[in-house]
Simulated scan of single mutants.
Amino acid sequence: MVGPVDAVTLCGRVRDDLREVEQQIRDNRWLADLEAGALDRKALRGFAGEQLFVIPSDRRSFEALARRRPDEPAHGYLTGMAAGEGVALAALDTLAAAVGLTDTYEPTPGCQAYPSYVARLARDGSPAEVAGAFLVNLEAWGGACARMHAALTRGYGLGDAECAFFAHFSGPTGELERISLAVIDAGLAEGVEPAAIARAARLLQAYELQFWQSLPR
C-alpha cells in the first residue's frame, strides 16, 4: 500500500484481500451442519462455553485500551465496544442456560486464539488497529450470527430470548462502521501504518476461521 490512504479505501483493500478467508468462514462445516440440523446440544454447549471465555476477555481488552486512550474518537469507540460485550455476555448467559451448559466447561485452544490475539492488540496495538480488525471482521461474524439465530429458532426449539446473543451481533452496524472509520482515520493521521491495520485485520480474520474450525462437536 503506497502513498496516503484513508480508512474507507484501506478497509476496502483489506476486505478484497481477505475475500477467500471470509468465504472459508461462510463455508465452515460446523455452521453448515448446524443449519442442516445435524448437531446436538453438546455442540451448542461447546459454542456457548467457548464464547463464555471469548466475550469477557474481549471486554477486558477494550477496557484496558480505553484506559490508556482518553482521547476521542478512540475512547468512545473502545468504551462502546466494551459495553457491547457486556450486553452480549448477559444474552450469552441465557443461551448457555438454555442449552444446559454447566460451569465445568474447559475451552478449546483453537477457539481461544481469537481473544488471545485481541488481548495482544490491546496491549501492543493502537485503537486504529483494533477498529480496522473488527470492522473488517464484522461482516463475517455478523453473518454467522444471523445464520445461527435462524437455525436455532427454526430447528432447535430456541426462542428469541435464548438467541438474543446472535441478534445482538447481527443487528444494524451503520453507526459502528461510522465510528470505526473515524478511529482508523485518526490513527492514520497520527502515523499508524496502514500495513499495521491491514495485518491486524488479516490475523483477526484468520483466528475467526480457526475458531469455527476448532469448535467441538
Results as ranks from 00 to 15, higher is better:
155 G>D: 08
45 R>I: 01
100 G>D: 08
181 L>G: 11
89 L>P: 00
206 A>M: 15
173 T>Y: 05
32 A>M: 10
126 S>V: 08
77 Y>R: 09
92 L>Y: 00
150 A>Q: 10
126 S>G: 03
130 V>T: 04
138 L>A: 14
142 G>Y: 03
26 R>N: 09
85 E>K: 02
61 S>M: 09
217 R>D: 14
51 Q>N: 10
61 S>T: 06
114 Y>R: 06
77 Y>L: 02
30 W>Q: 02
107 P>T: 06
198 A>C: 03
58 D>T: 04
38 A>M: 14
174 G>N: 13
63 E>Y: 01
50 E>C: 07
151 A>G: 06
23 Q>I: 09
91 A>K: 05
30 W>L: 07
145 C>V: 01
33 D>L: 13
176 L>A: 14
68 R>G: 09
129 E>L: 12
117 Y>V: 08
159 G>H: 07
134 F>G: 08
119 A>L: 15
86 G>K: 00
21 V>E: 10
84 G>E: 03
70 P>F: 01
56 P>Q: 03
18 L>R: 05
153 T>F: 09
37 G>Q: 11
44 L>H: 11
146 A>F: 08
177 E>P: 00
31 L>W: 01
158 L>Q: 08
216 P>T: 04
217 R>W: 05
194 P>L: 05
160 D>Q: 02
92 L>C: 06
132 G>T: 11
113 A>K: 09
171 G>S: 13
38 A>Y: 06
42 K>A: 15
174 G>L: 12
56 P>E: 11
186 A>K: 09
139 E>K: 07
6 D>H: 05
7 A>Y: 03
34 L>P: 10
86 G>E: 10
91 A>V: 01
133 A>T: 13
111 C>G: 15
136 V>M: 08
166 F>L: 10
181 L>R: 15
160 D>L: 13
136 V>E: 10
110 G>M: 03
111 C>I: 10
161 A>P: 00
188 L>P: 03
98 A>T: 04
129 E>H: 02
75 H>M: 01
213 Q>A: 12
177 E>L: 07
182 A>D: 15
96 A>Q: 07
10 L>I: 01
55 I>P: 00
10 L>K: 00
212 W>N: 01
107 P>Q: 07
165 F>C: 00
177 E>Q: 12
139 E>Q: 03
118 V>E: 02
50 E>G: 10
97 A>Y: 02
10 L>Y: 08
129 E>M: 15
99 V>L: 06
187 G>W: 14
85 E>L: 04
160 D>S: 14
39 L>I: 13
168 H>N: 05
